[in-house]
Design a protein around this nucleic acid. Sequence first.
DNA 1: CCCATTTGACCCTC
DNA 2: GAGGGTCAAATGGG
Length: 253
Amino acid sequence: MEDTALASELERLQAMARELDARVHDDEGAPAAARQLCGALAASVDRAVRLASGSGNAVKNNGQPSQPRNSCRKAGAAKVRMQVRVATVQDTGPLNDGLSWRKYGQKDILGAPYPRSYFRCTHRHTQDCAATKQVQRAAADPLLFDVVYIGAHTCAQQGAALPLLISREQQQQQPPVFGQEHGSPAATEAQSIHQWPVEPVTPFSFPSSPGAIDGCYMLASSGYAAVDGLGFDMEYEPQLDEFFFDQSDLFQP
DNA sequence: CCCATTTGACCCTC
DNA sequence: GAGGGTCAAATGGG
């Protein structure tokens, strides 16, 4: 169980490094050297996690097993597992991702202050789409949501939701925003989170509704990015690495 | 009436 | 047996 402990510690270290990097980067007054150092720190921790993972230590988010149980129970599912940490400025719950999700369950997780919500593709039955996602508020920061995508969309909407991977410069000019659609109370934080991309083909997209929510957005890079209080992790089967990077080329201007 | 959410029960894995 | 994931009936909103 030492591997699990190591993975857990690395996970925590990784999360902290990323958060620090994101915060320092946002801080206009932070010295350039500090920003560089934090960026290097985050990158280094990322590499450490990858090395640990690659050496046989299953490093997965939230201490979850390296092979999700879903992979055994649902044929064709769990080929893609991606965790996204989403921050919202307003405590009204996070984002939508341009895809249709239907909530099918909610569970209190041992040791977690907030319940975990389970979503599946709206077209699960009509189009046999096996994509699911799990949404849970981060214990450390209620404004952060850990979103874990499991499986890839095979339904028609996968093409409908255009990915939006934009450059940092573009983001700074027009930051895409995440936010809930209906303004439901925070008490049901996850109930409106049903618009998110899942599969690598559409890493991320953003709601088109104007004036949605301000202050939170993300970009995709080599597995992680954190801007303006938002970061996300992408975890997927190793063989998909190349696929991710290839896809990113599609979003160049 | 249709569809999404809620929630307790059930199932599976460890 | 505990914990996590899913199912399905009940419920509510549009």
